[in-house]
Design a protein around this nucleic acid. Structure first.
Lengths: 327, 327
DNA sequence: TTGTAAGCGTTATCAT
DNA sequence: ATGATAACGCTTACAA
């Protein structure tokens, strides 16, 4: 066991409360006493027990993060960003992987909420109102909006418009779209952006239908895409794009000579495909940072008005897009 | 604020200690009283405060995991596996991303150790003895061994032998090896396996040198590989292999027709390359599960002898390996 | 400035 | 079987 505040008090010849004050830099303590306490604490390698402190202050010094799937690089990135910002703020973070399961999300909220000062819900699959009802701490949403809650989202539809505009500028007039799971929030945003883009550029968009947001989803969509008159394809995300690329390669279709492919998210893998993927960059680490800041603000003052931050997106042009093949 | 044990006690017309006993299933409580308490607890939606409980029991119900980099799918997988096993055991998990920085690893140990019942150190970059010295709880290592500590590792050298044997069976007699960071523990294991394989199969191994364990590392190694007489290449891990594949494609080299490529780890991305990667599968989720079990055992009885579990590895043959081209 | 004492919510000990 | 009481390690009135 580590040494307690009493050990330090005894060693420094003062009372426990004086140690507490001296170490918290806050109470009024004479300089001489303070240095004696600090020396004693140092010597005994004293570290305040966060549990005990939390019991009385009501603060745990912890944040909770709930993501649908840590294996998805998108969420891993969020976890990493949150992590690093939290550390900089002196906070530790609980991570719960809900395995894409709404029930587990709720369970995670329940088991975490008492041990954290605030909760970050990233792309929750379940009903947000329900989750919040069980949260005993401030909540910030990432990648989803909800009335009355602070959230950090990306300008998904804006990014979609940029992608389509770029394709149009290259000469593409018919573009296929591989949608993800029907219920997805980003999916809705994406379709919204597509509508805008059609109005703005006059391209024709062919909806290939809903697919799993996975490699297999993209793999399956490729054949449909090739059967359509589209010369370019916009994928639900980079992983789906990766599946597309793979199937296209297997069928001997050259990218971007024969078909242009655009992904979404700009996760690490987008740089590692062949050819490297043109994709809409969604800020993740900065979204996570913002989320921490919003949470910290809400913890300090539970009555601050919720803020809905929308982060800019931009198109990263790599080698998977080019001028359309003559047909 | 949620309701406390006293609220429940009052509602059930018993004392707080009876509530505690009734709910913990452990103390002797009459069936009638128990059901009354449970009903009251239900009604008030009472949940024991883990902080307060932890203060007296010394148990937090939490596990800590420290990984070098959550963005590395290998570690994300470990995190996910640990997560799910911990949940099944009624434990929550703190995750710390040390950002490949030994100093941050130590910091993470210090800030987490008081809030957890046990710590899992995954592929620590820093001196294990130093880390353990600052840990106030049981520690289990993943992917690294250390005298006196429980650990879960994979039979890396055995996997290497299998990979080389397979290549030899295909007809390859000269194999290039792309090593990772010089200090890496797995790197050492891999080289050991290589030595064994050379003895067993008589192939010639050409060490291309140390590279970063990243996409760029593989990208850079590809040119060296092509300049060598090797017909196959073994990469430090799948990400490196991915870099290799990419550069090879860019230089017009066909895989596996011209060159065979073998990765290491079998992370998700290995299935998504073109062609899909032959790779040595390292069990991660099961390693994480085992780690949780070892930790739980050590928590229950701090005096159990440390156990060094070595998990089997196997070769996953996909499409990146084939018979060597005639030279 | 410093110490004393109360209390955070729970469980463990000891009576009853 | 149940209840009173102390204790876990800390912070924070309040008193000195």
């Amino acid at each position: 066991m580590g040494s307690t505040i009493r050990d330090v008090a005894r060693a420094a010849g003062v009372s426990a409360s004086t140690v507490s004050r001296a170490l918290s830099e806050r109470g009024s303590v004479s300089g001489e006493t303070r240095s004696r306490v600090i020396a004693a604490a140092e010597r005994l390698d004293y570290r305040p027990n966060p549990t005990a402190r939390g019991l009385i202050t009501g603060r745990t010094g912890n944040l909770g993060l709930i993501v649908p799937d840590l294996l998805n690089p998108f969420f891993a990135d969020v976890a990493k960003g949150l992590q690093s910002r939290a550390r900089a703020t002196g906070l530790s973070v609980f991570v719960a992987d809900a395995d894409e399961d709404p029930r587990l999300e709720l369970e995670a909220v329940q088991s975490l909420t008492r041990q954290v000062d605030g909760l970050v819900l990233c792309s929750p699959r379940s009903d947000v109102a329900e989750l919040v009802r069980h949260a005993a701490t401030p909540v910030v949403l990432i990648h989803r909006r909800h009335p009355g809650l602070s959230s950090v989202t990306a300008d998904v539809s804006g990014g979609t418009v940029k992608a389509v505009q770029n394709l149009r500028a290259l000469g593409h007039t018919t573009i296929a779209y591989v949608d993800g799971p029907a219920a997805s929030w980003v999916g809705g945003q994406r379709r919204e952006g597509l509508r805008e883009a059609v109005q703005a550029t006059g391209v024709e968009v062919i909806h290939l239908g809903n697919f799993a947001g996975t490699f297999d989803g993209g793999f399956a969509a490729a054949d449909l895409m090739l059967a359509s008159p589209a010369t370019a394809v916009l994928a639900y995300n980079d992983i789906v794009a990766c599946g597309l690329l793979n199937r296209l390669a297997a069928r001997g279709v050259r990218v971007p000579d024969d078909v242009s492919v655009v992904g979404y998210d700009d996760v690490t893998i987008a740089m590692m495909t062949y050819p490297p993927l043109t994709t809409v960059h969604l800020p993740r680490q900065s979204a996570a940072r913002t989320a921490v800041d919003l949470l910290v603000a809400a913890i300090k003052d539970p009555d601050v008005a919720p803020r809905e931050d929308v982060l800019a997106t931009h198109l990263v042009v790599r080698a998977s897009t080019g001028v359309p093949a003559r047909r």
